[in-house]
Design a protein around this nucleic acid. Structure first.
Lengths: 125, 125
DNA sequence: GATTTGTTATAATATATATATAACAGAATG
DNA sequence: CATTCTGTTATATATATATTATAACAAATC
């Protein structure tokens, strides 16, 4: 895969995996219906422990982005056709709040923040 | 102060403090030049340890949002008059990236994300 | 001069992170 | 159908992080 972990980072490995897989889905590198590598295979590929990958997969499942089929594998479950749930919006908002606050305090304006969002959307699409 | 910590949260207490103080600065509840409570006073107020507050203050100082005057106290140092540094922009971008990615994957569009940012800016100003 | 301040140090405890093995039972595959 | 692969579960260990508890120090404040 396209995953690249930084063992030295202060971000836990399983979080790095979760975020990068989400970015992979957002950017279309991982398409809906596509299978993820087995936890053992990906762990061996990255040189990390099986349980670390497993933890990431379960985090992704909790977020509703993949489906884990017991004793079988994990499959990407793209954007829900039924639309975005309130819980998902609130989750994004909860993550976004401290980012916007920090941006404002360091002196970024509304336009600057909007511009950053646009740039990231472009990078992730 | 206006701080409210959740001891049960998965977010570390010192991070909760850091984020809420940043929000306080962003919203003008804490103004530039204003003094923060002493680490001991705030710790007693919140029912947490002095070192937990101290850790938060140093995190804020590292971000350039307060200035710690040794053996004296901590003072809010509003938005830098010299403008936003590249490091600060990159920091915000690094925080923003996984949020935008998650938003996109759950089905939010560019407009939805922009709208969320606008809403948060409004709430924090 | 007494109090308050951030600083530093040490220690203890709890939780989180990551790894290492191992075994199990269902799924997939030949 | 037997082998292999899968996620699951369990146990154990090591390290890092988070939090609290005390204590002492020296500079700033009152």
């Amino acid at each position: 895969m396209f995953l690249q972990i930084e063992p030295q980072s202060d971000v836990p490995i399983y979080t790095q995996l979760t975020q990068q897989i989400i970015e992979g889905i957002a950017s279309g590198q991982l398409k809906s219906g596509e299978s993820l590598p087995s936890v053992r295979a990906l762990a061996a590929d990255l040189g990390v422990n099986m349980h670390t990958v497993n933890k990431s997969y379960h985090e992704l499942e909790k977020k509703g982005m993949i489906r884990i089929i017991p004793k079988s594998g994990a499959v990407v479950t793209g954007p829900n056709d039924l639309g975005v749930t309130n819980a998902q919006i609130q989750q994004v908002e909860r993550m976004l709040r401290p980012v916007v606050a920090e941006g404002l305090v360091v002196g970024l304006g509304a336009q600057d923040l909007q511009q950053l969002v646009q740039k990231l959307i472009k990078n992730l699409s």
